[in-house]
């Protein structure tokens, strides 16, 4: 597979993640979509690492960092979801409109 096809797979995965993040009302589904998007980014980085970069450690470390950040993000996101659930007894993204103008 060429670099372009990897990138296209990454873009497709990102778009799927975007659909997931935008279409669902459940915050957990939104989180899943976001995870997909992050993984799409990881795939891109790995593909570039393989085909473009001379020092292949760079991309791998980047992806490791993304994984680490994703873990941190999920931890925070989940605690927020719990907090919201406790406050609203719901995790419907459409009902969280306190910031509405």
């Amino acid at each position: 597979m060429t670099l372009e096809s990897y990138l296209l797979v990454g873009a497709a995965l990102f778009s799927l993640g975007l659909i997931g993040a935008l279409s669902h009302r459940n915050l957990i589904a939104v989180l899943i979509g976001i995870e997909l998007m992050m993984n799409a980014a990881s795939l891109n980085l790995m593909a570039f690492n393989r085909f473009v970069v001379t020092d292949p450690t760079t991309g791998q470390i980047f992806v490791l960092i993304i994984i680490g950040l994703a873990a941190a993000e999920v931890a925070i996101f989940l605690s927020i979801i719990l907090r919201i659930y406790r406050a609203y007894h719901d995790i419907d993204a459409e009902k969280l409109t306190k910031l509405s103008g």
Partner: peptide, 26 residues
């Protein structure tokens, strides 16, 4: 795919952390 791209370590981390950790947390 990561494995295929030449990085067994990252692939392993992906399985361990993402599938084993994050998915379970979700």
């Amino acid at each position: 795919l990561f494995l295929n791209l030449g990085s067994p370590f990252v692939a392993a981390m992906q399985v361990l952390i993402y599938i084993g950790g994050i998915t379970v947390a979700i």
